[in-house]
Write a protein that binds this DNA or RNA. Structure first.
Lengths: 140, 140
DNA sequence: CACATATAGATGCATTTGCATCCATATTGC
DNA sequence: GCAATATGGATGCAAATGCATCTATATGTG
């Protein structure tokens, strides 16, 4: 097997594992009446950053599109889960902060999310053979 | 580190690696004027199945939503890349076949896709440490 | 300072998604 | 054979996405 074939197989496995885990985790959240994963990601990132986060930083970290994240932040604010303040030191920008309500919701989501992660990744490790070859490849 | 923490770390790594690779590969295709990955997946699956594929099977294999795939197939047919025939043995269903034009397009996409896979997965293997622990975990 | 360029974020519009429902044919149990 | 139910696929509608563009502020250069 060439190095490329190894990488190709890993890409296929990566897609399959991710797609199935992602779909099932989203379903678990939805079945429990919880919001989607992207909401959780934002809330958690903000809960970890007491001084708030600039949208453009969050976009890069979480790989959102700029316009998509802009509107996601507006939805989250409309739901009372975050606040968007003007940044005092940069008139162009904002700083996002989580609200108490946001923290409460994140805390309610976590047990469901945690359980789903555990179940899906337990299952995923059964597909490990598809990835091990990649991991054993020299990095350059 | 508990088993759960290992799985959680693996889930986070899986997301990051997948999201970045997926985004960059899609960009590479788009920059080359090629269609999106989901088109490629369908074309390739059909090219591998000379007798055609039933939509419901493709949905399951590629983890599409039923309605989403239904419309994707219609778009592909409108572009002349596939044909949707009525299944003779099941009046409810269809059988999808790739056209010559579809094969030609898939062949044109592949070199671009291949190059992008190679580059992204080469990079991805640098994040391997996040996943190895999961892979070493006993499966049950 | 004045001007050109870069950056943060919002927005209009077309396309795509997700969900619920709907239609048609298959299958099952009586 | 016939009603009840299940399955494959399409569709209407609301919501989300991607892209290009727009506005406002920052930064950099002469």
């Amino acid at each position: 097997m060439t190095d490329f074939e190894t990488r190709e197989a890993a890409w296929i496995a990566l897609n399959q594992i991710h797609a199935r885990a992602h779909r099932n985790i989203e379903r678990a959240l939805q079945d429990a009446g919880m919001p989607r994963l992207d909401w959780y990601d934002v809330l958690w990132a903000l809960e970890c950053a007491p001084d708030g986060v600039r949208p453009y930083q969050m976009q890069e970290a979480l790989l959102f599109e700029q316009s998509g994240f802009s509107r996601l932040a507006m939805r989250l604010e409309k739901e009372g889960l975050i606040i968007r303040r003007k940044d005092k030191t940069d008139g162009r920008g904002l700083v996002l902060h989580i609200t108490d309500q946001g923290k409460a919701l994140r805390g309610k989501i976590w047990p469901v999310y945690r359980q789903a992660i555990d179940q899906e990744m337990r299952h995923a490790s059964e597909q490990k053979d598809c990835l091990t070859a990649l991991l054993d490849l020299p990095r350059k």
